[in-house]
């Protein structure tokens, strides 16, 4: 079929070529390379206590970070959409800091802040709470980098929700908590989950902000990307590639999940539009 505007094949062709050379062919090469070792080699590289420990840490820290972000991200999105207050623009701006700030910079800043002699760390030390070089530190760093995802995902949805719906519910005698549970949460849930999934996916792969605060103690605070890095430094390409392949599969799965959630969200909002 003929297109109205010019340049379709040229721009689409360039787009596909560019993304193929830069992203797809390298990714396919990775999978290809890991297949080269055969099942046994792959299994050998992955079936290792250290790998398990890293996976356990990456998953649990990413999960808790996503959970914290879900909770506070929802709260902050709510505050930004519904309230006017002094400092709102600053709050809105700082949310994007983790997107813009180099991860290594975030890493050293968080480490210094939560270290035993740091501003916050020194407050926690007398309570015998240690953040730096513990799984808590990993979670702190992952919370930092994941925060914008939930806020920016929930905000627009919250904006489309009319206050009248809540007001109507409250006139009907519903308590604030009931209103939140029955009116708001069902509509916000897909966006919230999609935001949390993205934050989780980002956290699983994060490296720069975590390495400093984690301390990289094998079996204790070694996250998966760091394990890959360590294997590389020991020239264990087979091991690095095998773990990377697993991570890659997980990334695609998470991306797929986030997309399904967004699709669900679009459908839900679409229905809402149609009912009006």
């Amino acid at each position: 079929m003929r297109q109205t505007l010019p340049g379709f094949s040229l721009t689409l062709g360039f787009t596909i070529l560019y993304i193929s050379f830069l992203v797809f062919i390298p990714l396919i090469a990775l999978v290809w390379y890991s297949l080269d070792f055969g099942w046994a080699g792959f299994w050998n590289a992955v079936w290792d206590e250290r790998v398990f420990a890293a996976l356990r840490l990456s998953f649990s820290a990413s999960f808790f970070a996503a959970l914290i972000n879900g909770l506070f991200g929802l709260l902050i999105a709510w505050v930004l959409v519904r309230y006017n207050f002094f400092g709102k623009r600053i709050m809105d701006g700082i949310i994007d800091l983790p997107f813009a700030l180099p991860t290594a910079v975030a890493g050293i800043a968080l480490t210094s802040l939560y270290a035993e002699n740091g501003w916050i760390g020194s407050l926690l030390a007398p309570l015998d709470i240690q953040i730096v070089f513990t799984p808590f530190g990993v979670t702190v760093a992952l919370t930092f980098i994941g925060l914008p995802f939930v806020v920016r995902m929930v905000e627009p949805v919250l904006r489309t929700l009319e206050k009248e719906t809540e007001e109507a519910a409250s006139l009907l005698g519903a308590s604030p908590l009931t209103i939140f549970r029955t009116v708001l949460l069902p509509v916000l849930l897909p966006a919230l989950l999609a935001g949390m999934t993205l934050a989780f996916a980002r956290a699983l792969g994060e490296y720069g902000s975590v390495v400093f605060i984690a301390g990289n103690i094998p079996m204790q605070t070694e996250i998966v990307p760091l394990l890959i890095m360590n294997k590389l430094e020991q020239f264990d390409y087979a091991g690095a590639t095998a773990i990377a392949t697993i991570m890659l599969a997980l990334s695609f799965l998470l991306l797929f999940t986030a997309n399904v959630l967004q699709w669900w969200l679009a459908k839900k909002l679409g229905q809402k539009g149609a009912e009006r």
């Binding site: 390298p26 990775l30 994060e206 720069g208 760091l226 890959i228 890095m229 590389l232 990377a244």
Partner: peptide, 11 residues
């Protein structure tokens, strides 16, 4: 976005 930067280097 969803791929670890470490993997981006590894490839």
């Amino acid at each position: 976005f969803s791929i670890s930067p470490v993997i981006a280097g590894l490839v």
